[in-house]
Design a protein around this nucleic acid. Structure first.
Lengths: 355, 355
DNA sequence: CCCGACTGTGTAAAGGTTTACACGCAACCA
DNA sequence: TGGTTGCGTGTAAACCTTTACACAGTCGGG
């Protein structure tokens, strides 16, 4: 016997709940829930009636109530330093794609490259608004590790330190990437190779400088401190860094940049100064962002596989979420790839190898 | 849908709740809630004790429970066709910034340029996982309007049709943008101006074509159908479109592209063919993405103010959220801005102000 | 004919908050 | 002194689900 609905004269549009469906269909809310979630047992007859009533009423389940009860939100968060940075965009896109496939939504968090923001995001995980987090911290110190140890929701970090197994992570050996780029330049006979690095207090900054130094040592070249300048990983940072290089008595034979954005800034500054690339100076970047492919000359770069790292991170996280969190942390390492284009090979243009 | 993890015995490590704090501090949960939310009345003494206990226990409020009760999630969603498109990235960045300032989180939804995805996002608003939505649909037809009319949460659309007041929206007159670009080219004496448009079934596609036609009519030039080609708003789309133009008996004097991405593709193809820009052909794009500024030659373009539109949309939405939803829908219109750079001025004058 | 198994369903208890309402008490005023 | 006020606090009812448990009926086997 269907009870009389008690919701008539309320001026507000009350949300349709399973209670409404239950009343209308003459069953209990438990049955409605079972039918709608296809769980437990119910007869063919009830199934039809409940589904019909739900459709009729335009029912939509309330996510908050569901999440509260099931203790999972079907949301995962991505925290990056700069939403506009092409590298993170590529990552975000890849991640968005895989989490969407699995029915999760992506919450975009921006840290503005501030450590305290990163920490506070880690802490806010306790508020349970997401099931898991992918974070790509710029620095990765004790504060991070300490927070990570306390967090109870799965986290995967993109970046971090190699061999650190305190949490799932995906790592790219960017020092090796730098060495690959250096090999490429050294092989062409260049010995005066400038290095436009990022801020030295960031992880990428220190790691990549290390790669640069190693490559020089390996080839018996002493590091000229004047050839190492710093930018902030942005276009204008590269632009200013190039200005510093132009002040040197002689032009270096090649310039290696710690990321593509700075390389493009350098390219622009060099062009303004009438310096031709690659004829006068060879130029190499890192990241393989889309702009590198379409710049003129097309930029030689080292792909750090941003999209792939994003994809892997998402899969790692999803794995934690669906199967247990019992297994020990995993670290997936991807290998950078050198992509030779126009900006670093002088002889392909004018036919003459650099002396 | 995410797979159900088989009732993962999460018995231990219970979440710290206000009940725990209440017991420990010897007060009721209501008092705890009042103190923690700084609402209602409580003595200085209780304040101290509750706060101390909360800190001691490492309490973090449960978002789901709070949202369920308060009927608001502190989340807003952004739905765009392509997360990787620089225009949407700029929008997203601006939006993220303002919503973050107001304590909201941003959920990123991608529609893959499919209408059914857009509709289903609109429908899913009923599930209440966000407080509001910003959507930038590629097409904007009856299906959209019908759904929008039913939706009970505030939505603001970026794009849409001018003068449509069924919902908050921010609109840019891109037809006018096209006319501005055309004026710029016509003023220099060019009459053979090719137009690389987007797909004609999209809103931007039709609108911009319209602007192109109007400008021609205004100047008494008959439209040469061979000069209108189509791309898909991507780099490679522009590349292929340029190929078509190169097949024509004579080169046009100028090429106007419906967006910057295609313009850069055109630029690349022209360079491959040995055509110089701007000496042989003038080139103009639209959108003013960052790459336009650093390309070589720097691309003349029409700024469609993506970031600003994002900012405005976010503010519109936030306005709805905080003050009432009583007021009638508003439509904010922004005016495009011509940005003259190198690619369109043969006489090598750098920069320049819009007329 | 009884017992166990199974099937379909309902009852009620979470899940963690916010908040309307009520209550006890001190202070104040007439 | 009695009544009002205001303060600080507690009780309990939501918010909307999911789900453990119980119950009533049916059916088959012994």
């Amino acid at each position: 016997m269907p009870k009389q609905s008690k919701s008539h004269s309320n001026g507000f549009e009350r949300q349709v709940t399973i209670v409404d469906i239950a009343e209308r269909a003459g069953v209990s809310i438990a049955t409605v829930s079972r039918v709608l979630n296809q769980t437990g047992r119910y007869s063919e007859e009830t199934l039809k009636r409940v589904k019909a009533t739900a459709a009729e009423l335009g029912y939509a389940p309330n996510f908050m109530a569901k999440s509260l009860k099931k203790r999972q939100t079907e949301q995962i968060a991505l925290a990056v330093a700069d939403v506009g940075n092409p590298v993170y965009v590529a990552m975000a896109k890849a991640i968005q794609q895989v989490v969407k496939e699995h029915g999760y939504r992506l919450v975009l968090l921006s840290t503005e490259a501030r450590v305290d923001e990163e920490i506070s995001i880690l802490q806010s995980l306790a508020k349970q608004y997401v099931d898991g987090l992918i974070i790509s911290p710029l620095s990765y110190g004790e504060a991070h590790k300490k927070q990570l140890a306390q967090v109870k929701r799965p986290v995967v970090v993109i970046g971090g330190s190699p061999g650190d197994m305190s949490v799932d992570s995906v790592y790219v050996d960017s020092a090796k990437g730098v060495r690959m780029a250096m090999e490429h330049l050294l092989d062409q006979g260049f010995s005066q190779i400038a290095f436009v690095n990022g801020p030295s207090e960031t992880v990428p900054g220190t790691v990549r400088l290390h790669g640069y130094e190693e490559a020089l040592i390996e080839h018996g070249i002493v590091l000229d401190p004047r050839l190492v300048v710093h930018g902030d990983f942005t276009l204008s940072g590269g632009h200013m860094a190039a200005a510093k290089l132009l002040e040197l008595p002689g032009l270096p034979q090649a310039v290696l940049c710690a990321n593509d954005l700075m390389a493009l800034g350098v390219l622009r500054r060099l062009r303004e100064a009438g310096v031709r690339v690659p004829e006068d100076v060879a130029l190499v970047g890192m990241d393989d962002i889309e702009q590198a492919r379409i710049s003129s000359p097309a930029l030689t770069t080292v792909s750090l596989l941003a999209a792939e790292r994003g994809r892997i991170a998402a899969e790692l996280l999803l794995g934690r979420l669906t199967s247990g969190s019992a297994e020990p942390p995993r670290q997936v390492t991807v290998t950078p790839r050198l992509i030779v284009r126009e900006s670093s090979v002088a002889y392909s243009v004018n036919g003459g190898a650099p002396a």
